[in-house]
Simulated scan of single mutants.
Amino acid sequence: MIIELAKNYGFCFGVKRAIKKAEQIKDAATIGPLIHNNEEIFRLQKDFNVKTLENINALSNEKKAIIRTHGITKQDLEKLKETDIEIFDATCPFVTKPQQICERMSNEGYDVVIFGDENHPEVKGVKSYVSTKAYVVLDKEELENVKLPNKIAVVSQTTKKPEHFMEIVNFLMLKVKEVRVFNTICDATFKNQDAIKELSTKSDIVIVVGGKNSANTKQLFLIAKTHCQDSYLIETEAELKEEWFLGKKHCGISAGASTPDWIVKNVIAKIQTFNC
């Protein structure tokens, strides 16, 4: 059986930057998981004493706090600055960008439409920078019965699919007098999604490796599943089942933006032990 890696996969710039910061800082606490990969979070805690707190209210006697790659809300950041804790900001620059856009546009009187998952920490952070009205939506249907203002700015969660973002933009263009559109989808997301689409069309089994709470990893899995029915999302090699591979000739592998290479290597090594 051929095992082929996607042309683009795994750690993105923002995650690499955050991991490097955490390793250098050591003995610190992150506000929420630094990245969406439990195995890497465990490694940072074990090797660098970087622990994860559920939220800002869980801070006690910590001396150093790391802001997660997804960012935190503007209000939590202000609270954090009022303490004596040393702050290290590991927010991905691609996440900081929509935060800044939302703050600027709402200061100019625009309401803001955010294409994304309202419960995702990145979106919560971005929304907190809107001082006018924010509409968080996952599809255009959610806006159909909403009385919209004359001025709207549109941003996206960094890991969303561009074609779905454009559906919302096109809808607003027909309904609202002035629409300011900001494409805040990360280009690493584009590349990983294009790569898994290409790979899954020629594979008869696809393994996507990454955190099951990771938005970008779930997007990769959905794309793979569209083109290859036998696609599976796993966090570690322990979840692999040999029967998945019986009769398969071509196995494609991709990984989410928070998935380290050492986990991908473990997955490949485990697959190679199967008698397929």
Rank of each mutant, 00 (worst) to 15 (best):
Q229E: 12
T83S: 07
G252I: 00
I19A: 00
P260D: 12
S131I: 09
T132S: 12
I268R: 00
K151G: 06
A153C: 09
A6E: 02
E167P: 01
K64R: 04
T73V: 07
C228E: 00
E198L: 04
R43W: 08
K16V: 06
M105Q: 15
K202A: 10
A90N: 08
N170Y: 13
I56M: 06
F48P: 05
L5M: 10
S156D: 10
N170W: 11
L77T: 03
V209Y: 00
V176R: 05
I85D: 05
M166K: 08
A18L: 09
E54F: 02
L138A: 06
D261T: 08
A215E: 10
I263T: 07
V95T: 03
K160W: 04
T189C: 08
K127L: 06
K21E: 09
K51N: 04
E108K: 13
D187Q: 12
D84A: 06
E118G: 05
T273E: 10
E86P: 02
D194R: 13
T273N: 08
A255I: 08
T236N: 04
L53M: 07
M105W: 05
C12W: 02
N37D: 00
N183E: 11
E103F: 04
M173V: 03
S231G: 04
I87H: 03
K212H: 14
T273A: 03
E4M: 14
E54Y: 04
